[in-house]
């Protein structure tokens, strides 16, 4: 699904990701943890194709294609989805209209006809149930006046609508209370299947109680310094990052 090799990325001339490597196979859920400023969000933004993230070296192959050659919008239509840490507001544009444009842009990319109103509404209904979003919520302007939890739920709803191959969750758990966290995690779990992969970026182990990962990686100084199973997350929660740091420094 996704193969990142020796990726080095700079922002404003400063190297943030250094010789970063990661393989994600179809259907796998990978969690990336690590203290602040280690490059977790840079990884997410680079994969999604945000400007100002300068790739100095390395390659990223997504479903057999060179991801780095594509613009952000093309990557999205190819099936990369980023659930934003800070989703933006778009006044006057309802989630419904936004999704209609996005879903049809993707369908066009895949050589399909746009969905007619009836099928689209049916799809909206189905997917909104996944994240327990009310119908009237979808006719409101995107994220305008939404609470933190509502914004994140809306992100997961959009993820469900766009049916991506690779879902990147950038600290989706930040700012969520426990109920919102559960709803968001349930939504994600319902979207898990054998073809879809997840890259879950988080500070806290808490989220991983709900979204159980196949692999946990610890990032430090722009690269992965330790990988393991879900038990690694528990150890980090109990003991903090210091022991990882020490291990790294010993090498």
């Amino acid at each position: 699904m996704l193969s990142i090799k020796n990726l080095t990325v700079a922002v404003n001339g400063k190297e943030i990701l250094k010789d970063f490597n990661l393989e994600i196979k179809a259907g796998e859920v990978h969690a990336i943890m690590g203290p602040n400023g280690t490059g977790k969000s840079t990884l997410a933004a680079t994969l999604a194709g945000k400007e100002d993230y300068e790739v100095l070296s390395g390659e990223v192959i997504f479903k057999g294609k060179n991801l780095l050659e594509m613009d952000a919008d093309e990557r999205a239509r190819e099936g990369v989805f980023l659930a934003f840490q800070y989703p933006v507001e778009i006044p006057g544009v309802s989630t419904t209209n936004f999704m209609k444009a996005a879903v049809n842009a993707k369908r066009k990319h895949n050589g399909l006809e746009p969905l007619d109103a009836k099928d689209f509404l049916k799809m909206m209904n189905e997917k909104s149930q996944l994240v327990e979003i009310k119908r009237e919520f979808l006719s409101r302007s995107i994220n305008e006046g939404f609470s933190g939890g509502e914004k994140k739920r809306n992100e997961i709803f959009q993820m469900a609508m766009l049916e991506p191959s690779l879902c990147i969750l950038d600290e989706t758990d930040s700012g969520l209370d426990i109920d919102a966290l559960r709803i968001v995690a349930n939504g994600v779990n319902k979207l898990r299947n054998a073809e879809r992969s997840f890259l879950v970026i988080t500070h806290y182990q808490r989220l991983l109680n709900y979204i159980v990962p196949d692999f946990v990686h610890v990032m430090f100084g722009g690269r992965i310094v330790k990988s393991g199973g879900k038990e690694l997350a528990l150890k980090l929660e109990a003991e903090g990052y210091d022991w990882v740091k020490e291990e790294v420094e010993m090498i």
């Binding site: 919008d73 999205a76 980023l82 936004f98 842009a105």
Partner: peptide
Amino acid sequence: FYCNQRGLTDEEAVSMI
């Protein structure tokens, strides 16, 4: 970028906004 990330081109995004 938010709009791009959902698959919309710059033109589509600006027009929608």
